[in-house]
Design a protein around this nucleic acid. Structure first.
Length: 478
RNA sequence: GGCCCCUUGGUCAAGUGGUUAAGACAUCGCCCUUUCACGGCGGUAACAUGGGUUCGAACCCCGUAGGGGUCACCA
């Protein structure tokens, strides 16, 4: 009988959730949900100095927007709490003392100065196990006198630690490469090295899913499991997400975090879909997938070992796929805030603009810039009226505009349909190609050669007065 | 520097000893079209490198190069 899968996402509350972390979380979620397992959210706040106020709320909101729902966490007790490490301080100390008794750790009273003197010519510092040699009496004495101490892991000088990673296969590291890391800091808080092991065991985590940066230090953690006689979890280390060939996407440089993309006008589903694909490929090669499909198709065999460069262009394309499938009302709902920030506010019809924009944007933030031209009408060169394909020339355009102006002036109901029909009829009646008429009118009204939307759509948006005004103005340019 | 890991087009990637080496993004061209976009069709473009093993290697082994990670009282 298979054990129920329990995975965890254990961020430290130091700011925004970075895309790489979110992907780690996503995979842990997909892996668990596919097996009817549990995703635990644990807050790793043992480094009190790096804590950023509000970061925990940001974690909740990001997961919620991303559609990832954890089963246990600070806000959802599953019987394995507390789920915030700082609230578990006493637990770690208790286990650390037990580990000392088991020979897996020891007290260390070394000063900062002594530690620094241990640095070798390469700038690498390796602790020399000095305090491991302290007698029981010396330790008691120091403890009684309140000498500051840390608790270090006692790693064998010889031997090799081997384990199996679900993605990278068998990994072996010589213990001589590992250091006697601090498990409990002088402030009594545990380090990641210790807290993650104790918590993962106590919370019955079956699969540890995290970034590759832990790949070569995992044997250290295994030593702790072994010393306690605990069962080691399965490990799944994930390749990094890169900014370019040699730089990881980093929080420090503010490269990419989920909220930034949401603010930029990416749909949350598209972001999640895209990051799922960074480093993983489903067997059937699908690209656009719902969360449900991701859960069904997720498999570790499709996860790559090498890092992937984050390609915003592809995410934009994916986002556009999602936008195109949006019902129009939904599209308008997302677009409205962007119209509000644009020149359209209180001036142009949002619906009409939405109609011409919905197949022309990849992300919503393009809206203001895409329609800015409506208000940037001014002097332009009549060479814009030249269009080789339809054989439109400036003089011909002038002729068309002069003749069609009275026609437009007569139109009662100023709608796109009417304008279209009437322009088409005008072309036929006067022996022009309809492309020539549309080209001349559109350029006259927009003052530029490329526009989102056609001539009649623009005229409809501009309104009768403005349209006629612009055609008359264009006529003065020849 | 030691150790661990990685290496298919510009990018994401399929591929697990025999393939014309998929697909997608990007790019280029054509078609459609009320310009652009959408949509349709097509093109350019890759197995880091040197040795093996094998009848046969992108796939297996060794070396080299390049890249990443790690070597904290950060996670």
């Amino acid at each position: 009988m298979e054990k129920t899968v329990r995975t965890r996402f254990a961020p430290s509350p130091t700011g925004f959730i970075h895309i790489g972390n979110l992907r780690t979380c996503l995979y842990a979620y997909l892996f668990a949900k596919q097996r009817n397992g549990t995703l635990i959210l644990r807050i790793e706040d043992t480094d009190q100095e790096r804590i950023v106020p509000g970061a925990v709320e940001l974690i909740y909101s990001t997961l919620e927007k991303a559609g990832i729902v954890h089963d246990e966490g600070p806000d959802k007790d599953g019987g394995y709490g507390p789920y915030v490490q700082s609230e578990r301080k006493a637990i770690y100390m208790e286990y650390a003392k037990k580990l000392i008794e088991l020979g897996g750790a020891y007290y260390c009273f070394c000063t900062k100065e002594r530690l620094e003197s241990l640095t070798d010519e390469n700038g690498v510092r390796t602790y020399d196990k000095h305090c491991l040699g302290l007698s029981k009496e010396e330790i008691e004495e120091n403890l009684k006198n309140g000498v500051p101490f840390v608790i270090r892991q006692n790693i064998p000088k010889e031997g090799t630690g081997t384990y199996h990673d679900m993605i990278y296969g068998d990994i072996s590291v010589d213990y001589s490469e590992l250091e006697d890391n601090v498990l409990i800091k002088s402030d009594g808080m545990p380090t990641y090295n210790f807290a993650n092991v104790v918590d993962d065991h106590l919370m019955k985590i079956t699969h540890v899913i995290r970034g590759v940066e832990y790949l070569s230090s995992t044997p250290k953690y295994n030593l702790i499991y072994d010393a306690f006689g605990w069962e080691r979890p399965e490990y799944m280390h994930l390749p990094p997400i890169m900014k370019d060939a040699s730089h990881k996407l980093s929080k420090r440089y503010g490269d990419a975090n989920f909220d930034d993309f949401v603010r930029k006008g990416f749909l949350t589903e598209a972001i999640v879909n895209y990051i799922a694909l960074l480093g993983w490929c489903p067997k059937d090669n699908s690209e656009k997938m719902t969360m449900q499909e991701l859960i069904e198709k997720f498999d570790t065999a499709g996860i790559s070992k090498s890092g992937s460069i984050f390609d915003e262009a592809k995410m934009r394309w994916l986002n556009q796929q999602y936008i195109k499938e949006l019902p129009f009302e939904k599209f308008m709902e997302y677009a409205r805030p962007y119209f509000d920030q644009s020149i359209a506010k209180d001036k142009y019809d949002y619906e009409k603009l939405g109609k011409i924009l919905c197949t022309r944007i990849e992300i919503f933030s393009e809206i203001p810039q895409k329609i800015a031209f409506l208000d940037e009408y001014g002097p332009f060169d009549t060479s814009l009226f030249e269009h080789a394909k339809s054989k439109t020339t400036a003089p011909l355009a002038k002729e068309i505009l002069e003749k069609i102006l009275p026609v437009y002036e007569e139109i009662g109901e100023w709608t796109n349909d009417n304008l279209f029909a009437c322009s088409e009829a005008f072309a036929a009646a006067n022996g022009y190609k309809k492309q020539q008429v549309f080209w001349a009118v559109r350029v006259a009204v927009a003052g530029r050669d490329v526009t989102p939307g056609g001539a009649t759509e623009l005229m409809d948006i501009l309104g009768k007065n403005e349209t006629l005004k612009r055609i008359k103005y264009a006529l003065t340019l020849f």
